[in-house]
């Protein structure tokens, strides 16, 4: 398994109260699979991501990446947030190299790998630009290039499209899906956009409200995972979205 959560519970304790973010979460992601996690806001989606990245440990249970327990930040996992987190004082190419610098990769090889990912993410020609000179969509692509440059086994995407306008979002989902399919990377996408989950994933995990636990698991049995723009027009998409809608009990909440 590329990623496995075994009975994972995470509690945060502050001075005067304890808060259970996620409770007894179990799931597995196979190598090369694209899995989305959807759920209401504050259900612990980002907690799952942070534990996979090794930024903090589960209170109970185990998180395994490539069958090895995650004990701290590690090079098997690359993550991306809604914010692109590009360093504004670095050029795009040197931003892409950032993740390789602490790994003892020689300078020339760093540049090589970064240039390759730059081309992969359709940013060729922008290597010497600074982040402020790029549009929001291009900046997110640069962030993806940086994530791919470290050649992680798993890519964690935490709502990477939610700050973009609707059209840029569609194009970027398409470009991300293409790039990820090409590299064959295992991917975990955290999102609150139900259509996005359907368009991009092989499988969708639905989390309940806090304390988050998995209430449903939906296989998306549609072709062209690498082209969300093509999936978008398939009639089944609406059915899948409706299923998710039901699992999230959105109608009851609206009433």
């Amino acid at each position: 398994m590329a990623l496995e959560f075994r009975n994972v519970t995470k509690r945060f304790t502050t001075a005067n109260n304890a808060l259970t973010a996620v409770s007894d979460v179990n799931f597995r992601v196979a190598p090369g699979e694209f899995v989305s996690v959807v759920g209401p806001s504050g259900c612990g989606k980002s907690t799952i991501l942070s534990m996979t990245a090794g930024l903090y440990q589960p209170t109970e249970g185990e998180v395994l990446v490539s069958d090895a327990p995650v004990t701290g930040p590690n090079s098997h996992v690359g993550f991306m947030l809604q914010k692109d987190l590009l360093l504004p004082w670095r050029s795009i190419i040197s931003n892409i190299e950032f993740g390789l610098e602490a790994r003892g990769v020689a300078k020339a090889e760093r540049r090589d790998r970064a240039m390759k990912e730059l081309a992969h993410c359709q940013l060729a020609g922008f290597e010497n630009h600074y982040p402020y000179q790029l549009s929001g969509g291009m900046r997110q692509r640069a962030a993806l290039a940086r994530t791919l440059a470290i050649d992680p086994e798993i890519i964690l995407l935490d709502e990477p499209f939610s700050a973009l306008d609707a059209q840029t979002k569609l194009l970027l989902q398409n470009s991300f899906a293409g790039t990820i399919a090409e590299t064959g990377k295992t991917t975990l996408l955290i999102t609150h956009d139900l259509h996005e989950a359907v368009l991009m994933s092989d499988r969708i995990l639905v989390l309940s409200e806090r304390p988050g636990t998995i209430v449903a698991e939906i296989e998306v049995d549609l072709p062209r995972r690498d082209r969300p723009l093509e999936r978008r027009v398939m009639p089944q998409v609406a059915d899948y979205a409706a299923q998710l809608f039901k699992h999230l009990k959105l109608e009851e909440k609206a009433a």
Partner: peptide, 26 residues
């Protein structure tokens, strides 16, 4: 300093001093 930037640097295995020179100081 943006905590997410620091977390990113940590996730990339930068040492405490590395985080300082490459993220906090700039």
């Amino acid at each position: 300093v943006d905590r997410d930037l620091v977390n990113l640097a940590r996730a990339y295995n930068l040492s405490r001093l590395g985080v300082f020179w490459k993220v906090e100081m700039p």
